[in-house]
Structures are given as structure tokens and as C-alpha cells.
Nucleic acid binder design. Structure first.
Lengths: 249, 249
DNA sequence: GAACTGAACGAACGCTGTTCTATAGACACG
DNA sequence: CGTGTCTATAGAACAGCGTTCGTTCAGTTC
């Protein structure tokens, strides 16, 4: 009968993350108890994982890939991380922790919300495909709730009633996640051009032109508008659309 | 050197789906050339896959699972389907084909858009988790573009300028996908209650109450509003928010 | 009747997340 | 200062995934 390590190992630390202490505590960091060579830290695992995602995308993030980068086997990671899902949660926690939240200013609350959304967008795009993990993450994560709290404060300062404010930031966060996920997927698929995955506007226009005119009159007629928008124009449009609809109530 | 079957097999049929003929053509269906026992059809594969997803969720949809249900091996599927990704595309194509698009009516365009979004929402929720495939699907899929065309016609009939209309339906479709994905994941994780995955409002309220009051004043102060909303209230709110912001311009 | 075609399928490959097991080093204690 | 306990480190393995290879063989065609 194995009498030790029932289910106490890294799960406790994770539960401790969710509930009690302040955010991002002491950075004790230093190898507290050396084991083989230089001991592995949770932060090391997270750092390595983020490096992998930044370089090769979220799809390339596997336990073995992280373990290889740390010059060890995949089993060693499970002393510091409960799960792959747990690692995912740690990743988005780290990402969300880096979002800076402005002090709510009633005069400029719309721009403040826009800024936070832009921060999240760029942060997620820095690590392509990680939005998949963000969508799956438990919403009671402390770092996630910290952002929600900050955005809630901004919108409330803008004079929006609480229920409306809560639902709006919910929708905004969801849209940011979906937008970045879609964009990452598009970039990823445009990298391998093996199949019919087009990138260029010309190719898109050609596809639209090839559609049957009887069934797709509007799509063909407004093809230019359909594929319009440089950079994050569509993103800005939607965020402003929601904020604008919010303000006018 | 294997001189046959270079890359002509089911890929041609798929390309044919994307480009030329009308939608959902003749239903020749009948086993044209009998092979072993009863030959497998693409539609059979899609039907079986959808049954699996409806019953066990998208995460349970594997090639082996579909093959088992068809009483064969996984290799047999690759005579009818290029990829798992190809199967995914076929699935969302089938789903999208069942969406009914109303004739654009300038007087009620807002309600018409709401109806289409609701249809998509319910259709996706009928097959939990399939939104993941929808988000990954190539947007030039014919059935997907059919919906875009229909919604574009509705919004244009409402007098919205083309570029705004195009971006708006883009954002709406993205939100519907994200919303259904999030909801499916929540239901899925609430099924296995092994970890801290809460469902009940009471549990959520308790979590909010446990937060440090100094760091989460708004979250604690408006906990009731944060978890408010029965059924699809949040969905209706967001869709109306976007449509409303669209109408007022 | 013989040649050909292409769907069916068993077997295998490389990959994934995860668990079992033993081991070995650092710390606490007598 | 030796000894024992604790636990992080890994090697090996398991089940499952998508996919490919090579073979078999029913049906069509000449």
C-alpha cells in the first residue's frame, strides 16, 4: 500500500492559488530543496511552456515538449502540475496577471475598457492559439477575476447599472477570446499552404467571384466590403459597437 | 511505387462541395457499387458522427468511435473522408445547411437577425462542443457562406451600410460560436464534479463571498448581478446589444 | 474469362496525456 | 555523526489518438 502522496502534492498548491493569499506572493523562486541537478519550479514549467507557445503555437505545447526543453521526462512535470489542464490554467493566469488595469475614470471609461480589451487581445496574440486554453479555463481563477473586477469597476464608474455592466464585460471578454482564437487559427493555417487555405485578398476575391450569382447576390455584390479591414479594424469595430450600444441606454 | 490513388480519392468530392454545384444536390445516395457487406457512404459517416456528438459530446468524436459505430475499422473511413478536419467541416456544413433563412423584411430585420442567431445557437447546443469545429472551419465553406449571405441580405435590407453590415454579421457569428462553446464546456465540466467545478449559484456566491474584500469590492458588492441571468438571458442581451448599437448609427 | 479499379480492413507507426515504480538526494532527528 | 523519512526525479509503460501501409477482393469493363 502506497502510504504517501495520496493526492496532496501539487493540487494543494493549486487550491492555495485559488483561494487565500494575495496575488503573486513572494517569489521565493530560489531552489528551496535541491534534488537532481537543479530542481524544477512551477514557474520554470510555466516559463518554458510560454516559450514553446510563443515560438511554435499552442498546438505544439505538449508535456513532452516542455519536458524536453527542461531536459527531463514528461513524468517529472507531474510533481509540479496536476494536469495539462492545470498547466493551461497556470498559463492564462500568468498572462492575465500581466494585464494592467487603470484606475477607473468616469470621464474616459469607454476608452479605458477599449484599452483593456486591446491589452488582452495583444497578450493572447503574442501566444498564438492560447485562447483555446483561455476559453476552457475555469472563470473563478483569481487572475481572471482580477481582470473582471477591474473592468467592472471601470464600467460601473461609467454609470452603467450593475447587471448590465456585468453582462457586458462578460460578452466583451468572450469576444476577445474568440477573436484572438480565430485570428491565430487563420495565421496558423496560412503557414502551411498545402491545401486550399488562402491568405491573400486576391484569392478571396477570386473565390467570391466564382460563386453562383443567383444564390449569392449580396456576397458577390459587396465582396470588397466583406474582405475589407486592415489590422484590427474589425476588432475595434466590434468592441466599439458593444461599448457604444452600452453607453446609449 | 504505388501508382494508384495519388490524392484523387475523397478530396475531389470535397472540392466539388466547395465550388461548383448547387447546394445538397441529388441524393443519389443509393450504394452505387456494392463492396463488402453494405458499403459506407459519406452521409452515413456524417450521420454517425453527429449521433456520437449529440450523445457523448464533441470530445468523444474520434475516428475509431465512428468506425466502431459503423462496425468497421478506422482505416475504412479514410476512403470517404480526407481528414478528421474534413469530417469536422462536413459536420458543420450539415448543421449550417439546416438553418432556415427568412426572406429579408426591412420592417423586422432586427428580429430576423435575432432569429437566425437563435437558430444557430440552438443548433450548436444540440451537439455539445461542436462549436470548436465551427471555429476552426474554413469560412469559405459553402453552407457557411450561405448563412452569411442570408444574414447580409437581412442587415442590408435594414439599411445598414455594406461594410458595417459585413463586419457586424462577422462579429455576431463569432459571438454565437464562442457562447455555445463556452456553454457546452460548462455543461461538460459540471457533469464530472470531481474537481472544484461548481454549478449551483450557491456555490458561486460562496466563492465570491470568500474573496478578499479589499481587492474585489465590486465583485463582492454585486455578486448577485454577476451570476444573474436564467437560460439564455446573457445571450439575448449581447445579441441585442450588438444589433442595437448597429441600428443607432 | 481476364484485367482493372478502388473500397474495405488488419496491422502498425508515431504521437498524446498520464500513471506506476524505483531511486536517490536533502533535510530532521536522535 | 549516522540514520531515517520525505519527496522530487525519471525510466518505463499504458491506453488512446489520427493516420498510413499493404493486402484482399467484389464489381465493372473490355
Amino acid at each position: 500500500m502506497s502510504s504517501y502522496g495520496e493526492h496532496v502534492n501539487p493540487r494543494e498548491r493549486r487550491a492555495a492559488r485559488h483561494l487565500p493569499t494575495d496575488v503573486r506572493a513572494v517569489e521565493d523562486g530560489e531552489p528551496r530543496s535541491g534534488r537532481r541537478r537543479k530542481p524544477i519550479t512551477v514557474d520554470q514549467v510555466v516559463d518554458t511552456a510560454l516559450t514553446v507557445v510563443a515560438a511554435e503555437g499552442y498546438e505544439a505545447l505538449t508535456m513532452r515538449r516542455v519536458a524536453d526543453a527542461l531536459q527531463t521526462g514528461p513524468a517529472s512535470l507531474y510533481a509540479h502540475v496536476v494536469n495539462k489542464a492545470d498547466l493551461d490554467e497556470l498559463l492564462i493566469g500568468r498572462l492575465n496577471a500581466e494585464i494592467v488595469l487603470p484606475e477607473p475614470d468616469p470621464a474616459s471609461w469607454q476608452q479605458q475598457i477599449r484599452d483593456v480589451c486591446t491589452q488582452m487581445r495583444d497578450q493572447y496574440l503574442r501566444y498564438p492559439g492560447i485562447s483555446r486554453a483561455a476559453l476552457a479555463a475555469v472563470p473563478t481563477n483569481l487572475d481572471t477575476m482580477r481582470i473582471a473586477e477591474g473592468m467592472l469597476g471601470i464600467v460601473l464608474a461609467g454609470g452603467i447599472p450593475p447587471r448590465t455592466a456585468a453582462w457586458a464585460i462578460d460578452a466583451l471578454a468572450l469576444y476577445v477570446n474568440a477573436y484572438t482564437l480565430e485570428l491565430s487559427m487563420l495565421h496558423r493555417h496560412s503557414a502551411d499552404q498545402d491545401d486550399g487555405w488562402m491568405v491573400s485578398r486576391d484569392e478571396l476575391l477570386r473565390r467570391f467571384a466564382a460563386l453562383p450569382a443567383d444564390d449569392f447576390p449580396h456576397t458577390k455584390g459587396h465582396a470588397a466590403e466583406l474582405i475589407a479591414g486592415e489590422g484590427h479594424d474589425r476588432f475595434d469595430f466590434t468592441v466599439s459597437l458593444m461599448i457604444g450600444g452600452l453607453a446609449q441606454r
